[in-house]
Design a protein around this nucleic acid. Structure first.
Length: 827
DNA sequence: GTGAAAGGAGTTTTT
DNA sequence: CTCCTTTCAC
């Protein structure tokens, strides 16, 4: 194995070695010593320590915006330049593929050359890479499929149905969640069964579901998302010599966003950083014909983790904050470096962030600070509705753009994907160029999954699920009955689903159906021949395979012939996928079909970001982690949304939601906007929304309320602008903001803002308009602040959700939420 | 086996 | 409100 003559992995001072092959090769960086200086250039003392420290384990507690990426890349570059490590001995784990690409590029830039052989990737990508190499050790092939959560659910749904487990109260999402949670704890069906209480019939059935799920996965030669990590750990534990290969290879392991690692990921890191013993176990060497490989033992790889427990926001998917909190205990000899100086945001933004997060008890006190000055105040806005709020955002973005902030430097965050709807509607109308990250992602669209299923069926003939998906897509007259018949045939004859298709003439089905199945089988075989590694002209590029499949299956033609108006867009999406395969070939010369499928399976929302796009970015708070923007709009800062209603019942829920809010705030460099709405539409109904408790945690003098929750509905209140967006003449959006500016008059007449938190709630929440139990009957006449007088036609809904259907004399008919609408009854 | 229509259920965050 | 499943007629 490649190894520098002396890795110096644990020497206390960095060793600088000049000469060819080391730092000297680093293009313009000059000799070793000056390169070393350049590495530390512009860093503060803590950052320098984080770059230079050498030891078995290092924890870098990096507050938001404290320059951790810079520290990590310099640390890696330093290790390589000083010849403490070959690039191939470095494994760096990032949270997204985009972050990985960025880090690789920055390390390359520092060194003046691309460092070949470094592994910089996400946990999932790294594990796929390992699993593809080693799959044959334990009953998989290297072309295994990766099931995304949607695929897992489809499979679970089928199993629940087969077992009729739904009658026992099992739901797909419940089972999927439980299995995922168990896998993150490295449990499997057997280990779970050992602890299960079999007097409980539910437990028994769950174990059976889990078993069948596991069996189906391995029969399909497939791993689900959680398996990628868990099975790698299993592989290392079951085959110590395989583990040793990787322990010997990776001498420096760096993990970013360590606070969001789950138990399985933690176990993986532990496995990789174990010392390598005096190779006294020969079984592997004997089996694999290695001989005389008895090398000396090695200490465990050096481990560097970077994280911030205040930014831990993935507990719901098993992230365990203890991994970082207990790091020093876990890894004896560990050193901790604290990075608190922030290079991203203004002091006002940081003060707000600090104030909010300090409400989480049970945390190490940490205060972000900066020397760039206070900056602008935070801008607050309360809309009448979600649309009104969106209009505010769109208006402000337009203003920002006019004053020179490019669209790409602006981001809009929200808690739930459902909130994009109102934003998109208004943005389209206001001609604000935007891009939604995540949401219904490109690769999750049905038509894309259909087409990918064709490719998967070719790459992995064992994947019955992919085959069943394409069996009747496009329509071939093959229904559920035939589909099941093939599955039964495959099972009873112990052949693959693909073989069952080839032998479909033995099933005694109708001639038309049989021909359809055989045609498909032939097409798949032809496509498979294209990617045969032994093919004379080498395996065909993915685009060629896809083109053949699309052409012969008639998928696109069928789409274009469809009557659904969205079918044309779907056909275009498929064309785009074809373009993606061509792009892939360009970027990955020699890239195989499985490589393409891997890449596609592991794209994250944040990977879709295109820095050159020139559009505003819309994303959830979760997706926003690790990103930063000149101006940030944090929308929907309301109770039941942030904190989300669902979090209330979970232990640690409200604290995690607060961290989410904190993450959102700290993404902003110069300008931060916090907005909320008084009512929010959810599934057809309109509900009252109350300001988030977290707003009260921000010192009052940091927020400049354009329209505060207390002001929004007071007398002379603002126009619900979304409803009046097209009002002609004179009453532009701008003037409506001015109208609300005049409100600051009444605001300033309030007593000085109380500083103590106890009195805060009054200021924000108590002034939201509340009509209490205002009783309205059909026939009553009312007066509305904006719409004038009208007649109540009907009242629907219960309690706070009572809605009046009103026919206004001038403004037409409206539906109003009685509790908070600016209305009064006229005698 | 297909397609339309009606009914019901469920709504967080994601690799 | 929307997505999904079920039901029913061809």
């Amino acid at each position: 194995m490649n190894s520098p003559s002396d890795p110096h992995a644990h020497s206390s001072t960095p060793v600088i070695v000049g000469g060819p092959g080391s730092g000297g090769a680093a293009g313009g960086s000059g000799g070793g010593a000056s390169f070393h200086d350049a590495l530390l250039d512009g860093l503060n003392p803590q950052q320098r320590v984080a770059v230079e420290y050498r030891g078995p384990a290092l924890l870098i507690v990096a507050g938001a915006g404290s320059g951790k990426t810079s520290v990590l890349t310099r640390r890696i570059a330093g290790l390589i330049d000083s010849r403490e490590a070959w690039p191939s001995q470095i494994l760096a784990i990032t949270f997204t593929n985009k972050a990985a690409a960025e880090m690789r590029e920055r390390v390359g830039a520092l060194l003046g050359q691309t460092a070949e052989g470094m592994w910089i990737s996400t946990f999932h990508s790294a594990c796929v890479r390992i699993l593809r190499r080693e799959a044959e050790n334990f009953g998989f092939t290297k072309s295994f499929t990766i099931y995304d959560s949607h695929d897992s659910r489809t499979l679970i749904k089928r199993i629940i149905k087969d077992l009729q487990a739904d009658t026992f109260g099992f739901t797909v999402s419940g089972v999927a969640g439980k299995i995922s949670k168990l896998k993150n704890e490295l449990a499997d069906a057997d280990s779970y069964a050992r602890t299960a209480n079999f007097n409980d019939p539910q437990e028994e059935i769950f174990v059976e579901i889990f078993r069948q799920y596991t069996r189906s996965l391995s029969a399909a030669n497939a791993f689900d998302f959680d398996d990628l990590i868990g099975q790698t750990v299993y592989l290392f534990r079951a085959f110590p010599q395989v583990a040793e290969t990787y322990r010997r290879r990776f001498r420096h392991i760096l993990v970013d966003e360590y606070q969001d690692t789950n138990h399985a990921q933690y176990a993986l890191i532990r496995e990789l950083t174990l010392p390598v013993g005096e190779n006294d176990d020969d079984s592997y060497a004997l089996v694999h014909g290695f001989d005389g490989q008895r090398t000396a033992g090695l200490p465990g790889a050096s481990l560097t983790v970077v994280g911030d427990s205040d930014q831990s926001i993935y507990a719901f998917r098993g992230a365990d904050i203890r991994n970082i909190v207990e790091f020093e205990r876990d890894f004896p000899g560990a050193t901790t470096v604290l990075l608190e100086q922030n290079y991203r945001s203004t002091q006002n933004i940081l003060t707000a962030a600090n104030a909010v997060i300090s409400n989480n008890f049970d945390r190490k006190d940490k205060k972000l600070w900066t020397d760039v000055g206070d900056g602008e105040k935070i801008i607050g806005f309360t809309g009448y509705s979600g649309h009104d709020e969106a209009q505010f955002v769109a208006d402000e973005i337009a203003t920002l753009h006019e004053s020179g902030t490019p669209y790409k430097d602006v981001a809009v965050f929200y808690r739930t994907n459902a909130q994009t709807r109102a934003l998109e509607e208004i943005f389209i109308r206001a001609a604000v160029p935007y891009r939604v990250l995540g949401g219904t992602r490109f690769y999750e669209r049905a038509e894309i999954k259909d087409v990918l299923a064709y490719l998967i069926a070719v790459a992995n003939p064992f994947d019955a699920m992919a085959l069943r998906r394409i069996l009747n897509t496009p329509k071939r007259g093959i229904g559920p009955a035939t589909e099941t018949a093939l599955a039964v045939f495959a099972e009873t004859n112990e052949v693959s689903y693909r073989d069952a298709m080839r032998r479909s003439s033995e099933l005694g089905l109708g001639p038309k159906v049989t021909t359809a199945i055989l045609d498909l089988a032939v097409l798949l075989d032809e496509a498979t021949a294209l990617i045969d590694p032994d093919r004379a002209e080498g395996p065909a590029p993915v685009s060629e395979v896809l083109a053949l499949l699309l052409e012969r299956s008639g998928y696109v033609v069928a789409l274009r012939a469809g009557r659904d108006p969205q079918d044309e867009a779907r056909a275009e999406n498929v064309e785009e996928l074809l373009a993606v395969t061509k792009e892939f070939a360009k970027n990955n010369p020699g890239g195989q079909l499985v490589d393409f499928l891997t890449e596609v399976s592991l794209v994250a929302a944040a990977d879709e970001l295109d820095d050159t796009s020139g559009t505003v970015s819309l994303m959830t708070l979760h997706t926003a982690k690790g990103l930063e923007y000149e101006a940030v709009f944090l929308t929907g800062v309301e109770e039941d949304l942030l904190p989300h209603r669902m979090s209330a019942s979970e232990p640690g829920g409200p604290a995690e939601e607060r961290r989410l809010f904190y993450v959102g705030i700290t993404r902003a460099r110069k300008r931060l906007y916090l907005s909320l709405a008084m009512t929010r539409a959810q599934y057809g109904e309109t509900a009252v929304a109350m300001p988030s408790r977290y707003l009260q945690e921000i010192p009052a003098d940091l927020i400049d309320w354009r329209q505060s929750p207390g002001m929004a509905t007071s007398r002379g209140g603002t126009q619900p602008r979304a409803l009046n967006a097209n009002r002609p003449g004179g009453f532009s959006t701008r003037s409506s903001i001015r109208a609300s500016d005049s409100l600051s008059f009444s605001e300033s007449s309030l007593p000085p803002a109380p500083r103590t938190k106890a009195e805060w709630p009054n200021r924000i929440t108590a002034q939201v308009r509340d009509n209490g139990d205002l009783e309205l009957q059909p026939g009553d006449r009312i007066r509305h602040t904006d719409f004038g007088e009208g007649r109540v036609n009907a009242v629907t809904g219960e309690g706070t959700k009572r809605v009046a259907h009103v026919q206004f004399d001038a403004a037409g008919s409206k539906k109003l939420l009685i509790k908070i609408a600016p209305i009064e009854k006229i005698a």
